[in-house]
């Protein structure tokens, strides 16, 4: 059995759904961040899969480049997101997103 593009896309869809699950149903801010990272990784997997299965290979390899840039952006996002979680925790003494319901500190 050689995997086709479909199977890769289904795995990536499953990963995306799991990420969405983490982001929607957990109440801890770190879980939400983990979910977002996982969704981004699923998108990267799609980029690479489409690049690999393209009938005519591109020069430069566009899919790979997009994946590299999106990895860099998600790293920046993770750093800022975690810093925000720490800042919020210092202020409210909680990381449960349901309890962060007032704008006035």
């Amino acid at each position: 059995m050689t995997p086709t593009l479909q199977i890769f896309l289904i795995v990536s869809a499953a990963l995306f759904s799991i990420g969405l699950l983490a982001a929607l149903s957990r109440r801890h801010a770190i879980f939400i961040l983990i979910g977002i990272e996982m969704m981004l990784a699923a998108a990267n997997l799609n980029f690479i899969a489409f690049w690999r299965f393209a009938p005519k290979p591109h020069q430069p390899p566009v899919g790979v480049m997009l994946a590299l840039f999106s990895i860099a952006i998600s790293a920046a996002e993770a750093a800022v997101g975690l810093a925000m979680i720490i800042a919020v925790y210092r202020h409210y003494r909680t990381t449960n997103v349901d309890q962060l319901d007032q704008l006035k500190g």
Partner: peptide, 17 residues
């Protein structure tokens, strides 16, 4: 303290998948 779990998220994720 992390005990909250929102089951509607599961439904949405499964539906999306």
């Amino acid at each position: 303290k992390d005990r909250g779990f929102n089951w509607s998220g599961v439904i949405i994720a499964v539906a999306l998948f």
